[in-house]
């Protein structure tokens, strides 16, 4: 599968198609080997590294990977090809990553809540354990935001807690929106149901705006437009930190009053959310390659150009080094059984 797109190269041929060179100057930087990372990259220099995106092109995972890839390419001095391999809600690509050569030429971006959660829950289709993989580094954290209809009766999280019957909307079991909203409902004993079957988060949002469901959970950054537009009311950040653009009145999970039992479950889930969207490699990856990739990624993620580009795209980066991710994974493996039992009902 090394036929995938070295897209820096394709970009050049695109430009050759006839745009003024100046137009795209910002993204036509050179990709000649310039190994400046401190790691030992001898084995990867000049190679083609494929990063598999387990979803269709155009989604968040795809965009993040394509955003970071050129900068990583520069650090390693290799060609990076981004390849989409959708299937089984992202599990297919991760299952096949397990069997790939562990020489560092095949990586993937993982969906922490979706894929990691299925693994912890022991769900069908997830043939891997979280600690199987080699962790390179996290591209972005993936906090969720609970929102309600701006025209509805629930305008704060306390309103939801006091509800007689609260209806969440979601795409279906195992999806992030389903897991997070069911988990919050279970932990805080919110009466109501999760309506499943929406074809995508767009349709779920539409139902929230129309008021036919009371609320939903969704990717924090993707909610920004609707929140600023005033059609959706943010009520709770399911993540460690609240972003600048969100009003301080919106609490994070950690700021809620909880019993010890509740806190234990929420902490475990926050750890899963903290796992976010990491680049991972096959189990037991070659040590030199691992250290090369980790160092290169750490350097790439600090590149001011990348930081600026990510800000322009409103795609927040949240780098976390590979060894810290491993610690996080270990915490998750040691999570209280109550958590994995709860998750098992949601996948």
């Amino acid at each position: 599968m090394n036929t995938a797109m070295p897209y820096r190269r394709s970009l050049r041929s695109l430009i050759a198609l006839g745009v003024g060179a100046g137009v795209l100057s910002g993204c036509s930087s050179d990709s000649e080997p310039a190994a400046s990372g401190g790691g030992d990259c001898a084995s990867l220099e000049g190679e083609t590294i494929t990063i598999v995106v387990p979803y269709e092109p155009g989604g968040g995972y795809d965009s993040y990977t394509r955003l970071v890839a050129p900068y990583l390419e520069e650090e390693i001095g290799a060609t990076i090809a981004v390849q989409n391999q959708p299937g089984a809600g992202g599990l297919l690509a991760l299952n096949s990553l397990r069997a790939e050569d562990a020489d560092g030429t095949k990586l993937a971006i993982m969906n922490g809540v979706g894929a990691g959660g299925s693994s912890i829950a022991g769900a069908e289709g997830a043939d891997f354990a979280l600690d199987d993989f080699t962790y390179i580094g996290r591209v972005a954290s993936d906090p969720s935001l609970l929102v309600t209809s701006a025209a509805g009766e629930y305008q704060t999280f306390d309103d939801i807690l006091a509800a007689d019957e609260f209806r969440w909307g979601s795409t279906g079991p195992g999806a992030e929106d389903y897991v997070t909203s069911s988990l919050i409902s279970a932990v805080f004993d919110i009466p109501g149901e999760v309506v499943t079957g929406f074809p995508g988060s767009g349709e779920t949002e539409l139902a929230v705006v129309q008021g036919s469901i009371d609320g939903m959970s969704g990717n924090l950054t993707s909610r920004r437009g609707a929140v600023e537009d005033g059609t959706q009311t943010p009520v709770l950040v399911v993540g460690e930190e609240s972003p600048d653009w969100l009003s301080d009145d919106v609490p994070t999970v950690a700021e809620l009053d909880t019993t010890e039992e509740q806190a234990e479950l929420l902490d475990a889930h926050l750890a899963l959310i903290e796992l976010g969207r990491p680049f991972i490699g096959p189990p037991g990856m070659d040590e030199a390659a691992t250290s090369c990739l980790r160092t290169a990624m750490a350097a790439a993620m600090e590149n001011p150009e990348l930081v600026q580009e990510s800000e322009e795209q409103e795609r927040e980066l949240a780098f976390l080094p590979g060894d810290e991710l491993e610690g996080l994974v270990q915490d998750l493996m040691d999570a209280p059984p109550a958590y994995s039992e709860l998750l098992a009902t949601l996948y």
Binding site: E56, G58, L206, A226, E314
Partner: peptide, 30 residues
Amino acid sequence: PTIGFGIPGGAGSAVLLSAFLIVGLNPGEE
């Protein structure tokens, strides 16, 4: 629906939606 609410009507307009964000536009009222 993409322009009015930022809700894509299909796969193509879903990708276009990311383009809105890239160029700094908020679909919706704006």
